[in-house]
Nucleic acid binder design. Structure first.
Lengths: 334, 334
DNA sequence: ATACAGGCTGGAAAGGCTTCCAGATAAGTA
DNA sequence: TACTTATCTGGAAGCCTTTCCAGCCTGTAT
């Protein structure tokens, strides 16, 4: 315990510089010397202290992830991709969970100061201009996943197109009266997925020449309970929708529960389409729009590391595709 | 960017020692001095570098979690508790996911060397003696969750009692022919939850004066697919069981799926009892034995921090209780 | 007026590594 | 043999804090 580079140097009869060069596999060390040092390192079971290393290198070897409600299936899937990529690259992943606006703001403003992580991945949260600038000035590379800011590399799914296709899936089965449960607009931050999905819905409707009926659109939280509340509203309308598109699988689950409790059979009485493609959707046999969640995590790490190795890069907007996975919650309307 | 304690000292016309004392709120600083320094700190937006700090303090402010398949619902729930506790204490949580024995062994042997975390929480993995000793010698405090080692503080659920009660729940409903799907024994490591649960099953059976029928006990992996395989075996027996107790909810899910595909109605044709109490069990209306997962995570952090503050403590075995939550997958056998 | 205790303060040392510069050695050239 | 060049190597400086020790300055007791 506590064996340092000096101990190794003394024991091997060389200078500390040489030991350092061996550790960092610099080529300008004579083979015979290298071997001697290596032998001592092994014998003493020496490991360079990562803290001292970061101290001088200015890199910690850790990547931070700021993620709201990290136990949400969506977050978990993204985290899975991030973890896989960081582990592969010998980096560590530290997760900053946010459940309140206060927490979010604190992390946004504090993290750049304490340089405890080399880079930041922000999931499902779009920083405001001041925050983005702050990241930049502090020299903390950041990439966004499922969120967007013009100054930061952002990974998003084509929400407009995804929602459009989801609606088309329903429309193509003959549905005309389709409920839409959207996610609630995020705090005071600008960009959000919800808006794009709404646009896609409108486009599909317009294309099918169906007039948008406001009472068919309900907004709720991105949760099971939110889905329940929204479905409750939709499924007690005087004129029932024959299908519902929920902006997330988790809201679709809530819808499913309400439908069941109301004695509505899915898909016979009600067709249902989700969004995300979390594992639950498979278990529930829920039709959905699949997002490449883990892949987004992996790409985010790759971008971050690239930025770390090669210095500042122009921000990039990376748009990935969703695809429909048809399961058994959709039926043709006779 | 890059403002150090020296800059502050110069700007405030004091020595670095004084600035340090102000930062660390030592009381031996004259009020007038303190204010002057504080003013400069605010003006320069100075934040002490956490790396330099850990360098000298020997504490990093991070806790590591070694967890197998961290996306498993069980792991996530434990992680949730850990995250909540660490965040509350201003610590960071870094997660080391393990998916192979190699990974596990590497983390076990490497982590104590690189002192990147102040302490370790090991979930669902029981270290062997050499590893436990290694932790000790390296001075890395570790606590185990859902795992056990005599030299380490361990948090477990009363698996014997839990399994016993689960079986009693079934027995009390008149079931006599009960299948048991157990989890597979973990690698070459000694302690495991599976064994205890088996003991509980035996006890309940013995008490009910039922002879143990080996063909009713199947072992599979702790996964959905494992559950499917086991259920497939159990539900194609010549004499079908009227109930099944699965050692985890996730295996119960697999069982549910096989039952459905075989045209067996749950609970009419087959009663089903799970173990864990993950969110999915609620969604599926699955009866189960609830473990206090998040709570285990919180307690683990508390113990670790206590150990960190107050120095070595004798290892403790903390046993928590499970409790039965009755939902709709169990019916009385007529 | 002198001595002394106590409160504050400055700054060197330490913590473990990497990097850079200069020196030493070996090899090559005239 | 004398001189260059290339290859290796040693060790000091530096990264940014905290801590410890010594010194300064008051105010108080004698």
């Amino acid at each position: 315990m506590g064996v340092t580079i000096h101990d190794v140097a003394r024991e091997a009869g060389v200078g500390v510089g040489t030991v350092s060069r061996v550790i960092n596999s610099s080529q300008s060390v004579k083979d015979s010397t290298r071997e001697r040092v290596l032998e001592v390192i092994a014998r003493l079971n020496f490991r360079p202290d990562p803290i001292a290393r970061s101290m001088i290198r200015g890199r910690t070897g850790s990547l931070g992830v700021i993620v709201p409600f990290f136990t949400r299936p969506f977050s978990i899937e993204v985290l899975r991709g991030i973890e896989a990529a960081t582990a592969r690259l010998g980096q560590e992943m530290v997760v900053y969970n946010v459940e309140t606006n206060g927490q979010r703001d604190r992390y946004f403003s504090e993290l750049p100061m304490r340089r405890k992580v080399d880079g930041l991945i922000v999931v499902s949260l779009s920083p405001d201009d001041a925050t983005a600038l702050n990241f930049e000035e502090a020299g903390l590379p950041a990439v966004l996943v499922d969120a967007y800011h013009p100054r930061l590399t952002s990974l998003v799914v084509n929400n407009v197109e995804g929602a459009y296709q989801a609606m088309r899936g329903l429309l193509d089965q003959g549905h005309r009266r389709i409920g839409f449960i959207n996610g609630v607009i995020e705090g005071n931050f600008k960009f959000n997925q919800a808006n794009d999905r709404l646009i896609g819905v409108h486009r599909a409707l317009a294309e099918a020449d169906i007039e948008f009926d406001p009472e068919l659109m309900v907004t709720s939280e991105w949760t099971r309970q939110g889905g329940r509340l929204a479905a409750q509203q939709l499924l007690t309308l005087a004129r029932l929708p024959t299908a519902i598109f929920a902006a997330s699988d988790i809201q679709a689950l809530g819808t499913l529960e309400v439908a069941r409790s109301l004695g509505l059979r899915v898909p016979d009485d009600l067709s249902l389409m989700g969004f995300d493609g979390i594992e639950l959707s498979e278990i529930l046999e829920l039709s959905t729009m699949q997002q490449p969640m883990a892949e987004m995590g992996e790409i985010a790490v790759a971008r971050l590391i690239e930025r770390l190795e090669n210095g500042p890069q122009p921000p990039q907007l990376i748009r990935l595709d969703t695809h429909m996975v048809k399961r058994s919650t959709i039926a043709r309307l006779e």
